[in-house]
Structure formats: C-alpha cells, structure tokens
Design a protein around this nucleic acid. Sequence first.
DNA 1: GTCTATAGCTAGATAGAC
DNA 2: GTCTATCTAGCTATAGAC
Lengths: 200, 200
Amino acid sequence: MSSDTSGTDTREQLMAATYRVLAERGFANLTTQRVADEADCSQSLVHYHYDTKDDLVVAFLEWVHEQETEWLETLGDGSAERRLRRFVDAQLSIPADDEHARFNVAFVELAAAAARNERYRAVLTAFSERLQATLAGIVRDGIEAGEFRQVSPEATARFLRYALQGAVQADLTLDEPEAKPQTEAAVDAYVEGMLLAERD
Amino acid sequence: MSSDTSGTDTREQLMAATYRVLAERGFANLTTQRVADEADCSQSLVHYHYDTKDDLVVAFLEWVHEQETEWLETLGDGSAERRLRRFVDAQLSIPADDEHARFNVAFVELAAAAARNERYRAVLTAFSERLQATLAGIVRDGIEAGEFRQVSPEATARFLRYALQGAVQADLTLDEPEAKPQTEAAVDAYVEGMLLAERD
DNA sequence: GTCTATAGCTAGATAGAC
DNA sequence: GTCTATCTAGCTATAGAC
C-alpha cells in the first residue's frame, strides 16, 4: 500500500468509467464530463490525470489491449483444430445485448476513428498484430502436427480474421440476422474443405 | 427545364459537397458549415433544404446508394468466375490515396455510426442486401452453369463479402500493408479450392 | 489530488430581411 | 431560395482555492 496507490486507483476507475460510457453512449458521445459523472468525480480531475481527451482515449485503448492480451492466453491447449474452433466461437457467440456487446459497438467506432488518428491506429495495429500472430500460430501448429494442410498460415489467419470481423461488425451495425449463422456455416465449410488434412 | 430545377441543382451540389467534406475531413468533422463552404452557399441554406444534419446525411447515403447501384450493373457479363473475380478486384484494387479512397474511410465511419442510428442503418442495410444479392446471384449462376460446386450461394457470398470488407477496412484504418495482398491470395485459394468445379 | 467556476470555442438550428 | 445575424447548448481545457 504505497502512497501512490490512490492515483492509480483513480486512473483505474476512469478507465472503467470510460468503458461504461463507451458502451452506453458510444464514442461519438464520449465526453470528459460523462466519464467524470460515471466515475463520480469532477470533470477537471479527468484532465488532471489525462491532459487531453485524446490522452484519455489512448490510455483506454492500451488498457483494453492489456486485458485482451490476458484473454488470448486463455485460448489454451488442445489440438490446433480445437483452438481454432474456440477462436471462431469466441468471436461469433458474443451474447446479444449485454454490456460487452454494447462496448463492441464502440470498439467498431474507435476502429473507424483510427484511420484519422495516428495514436489510436498505433495501439489498434498492435492489437491486430497480436490477434494475427496468435491465429497464424494456431494454423502453423496444425500444419506441423499434420492436422492441417500446407496452407499459408499468415494468409489463412488473415482471411479468417477479416471474415469473422466483418460478420461481427455487420451483426452489430446492420439489420442482418444471417450475418453470424451463415458466416459460421461458411467458416465450418472452409475449415473442413481447405484446412483439415484428408484422412482416408 | 421546369421551374423546380434550381432546387434540384442546389440539392445535387449539396450532395457533392457532402461527399468532398467527408473525404477530406471525415464524418466526425462533417458540419453543415463546412458543407455550405464547399457548396459555396450559406449554412442556413443547408438547413433550408435539409431540416437537420441527420436529414442531410440520410439523403446523402441514399444518393450514394443510387450511384453504387448503377456501378453494380456494370459488373456485366462473362462467366460466373469472371464476374466474381471482377467483384473481388474492384474491392481490393482501389487506388491508394485518391479522393475515392479517402471517401471510403468516411464510409467506414458512417457504417460504424449506423449501429446507433436507425435511419443510417436502414439505408446501409439495403445497400448491403443489394451487394449480397448480386454476389449470391453470381455464385448461383456459377452453380447452375456447372462452373461452381454445390455450395450455399448465400453463405458463400457472405463469407467472401465480409472477408473483403474486413481487408479493405484494415487497409484503410490500420498500418497493415499485408491486408490486401494476403487476402487476395487467400481468396484465390478459396475460389480454386472450394468453388471451382474440378475438371479431370 | 480534488474541487468549483469559468473562459473560449464551435456546433446545430432559427429569425427575419430580401 | 438565399442571405446575414444570432440564439442556445455543449464541449475541452484552464485558473485558482482547498
């Protein structure tokens, strides 16, 4: 319990408050005042800890990045096929309308904003590269173990990532009830037809 | 040349001005004042033609929708494989940094905003359904002609659309130089391995 | 570290003249 | 239909007290 924990606590509360504001109001309606209200403090305190709103958002993205990194490691063991299916399920089976799903909408908004904001882009690119490395690693493991065919791990991982991301985004932003079920079916067919080694 | 053409002209100019502002500044920085400046008129005139900013954006989305519909019909004839490849190329070979590419960034921003705006969502869902129907139609034609295997046209079209959209978006919003080339390679492998009928 | 108060700006929208 | 002028509201950021 060193003396600098109070500042750390406040920052942690501001990150959690930012998460909730993003989930409830979206990135376009994220204001330092709303974050302060959610964290039950004054707006000027937000600016004391984060000079600008952009600093707050960048810190928040890094905070999310760390949390997701922890999650990725829970993908755990098992055959490459099993880990791959767990990855796919994790993307496609997000509950319909809880806070996590609502935050994912904000994450889509933040991803779009990254195009015009170098600092957002840096964090989100690192985020994407980690996902890419994880999934490509799974494919590579599958090839080495003889489970998968001799495909390009990088291109295969990218193709699957983008398809899944497109499906999730369509599900979140459009009225497309078929987005996730049809994508799931197509991914299954892809895994069976292109990835799994034939055993006869 | 009926007497109501001047109003129509102004509206057309406002749509074109909105396009340019979106391409140059992005959706987050779209203001009625900037549209007015770009259209060389007063800000209040924008509000005369479109009561609210939302009305302007919805009208703009419908305007873009019409234009893209015309484009889709130029996909034209040829074998199903040829039309499919033309579709894929059209998505992946957008020039790097012209106005059209910059507008696509804004389109990603608008797509994200659709999650929290019913009216945007309605237009963009119609947009997506048209793309889906076109691509699924190509796959269906290919199956009927014996060019493609007996896949699900809807699920296949969706899978390809989402993968392509994910690649384009990653290319526009992240520092991922491999997004488009690796996706192109993976799509080629998918078309050859899953779609094209085997001839022996 | 945390607060209240406010400066300073910019946005969307409206009033009213022409 | 188009303009100028302005109202009102909301935002980021800072000043200064505690």
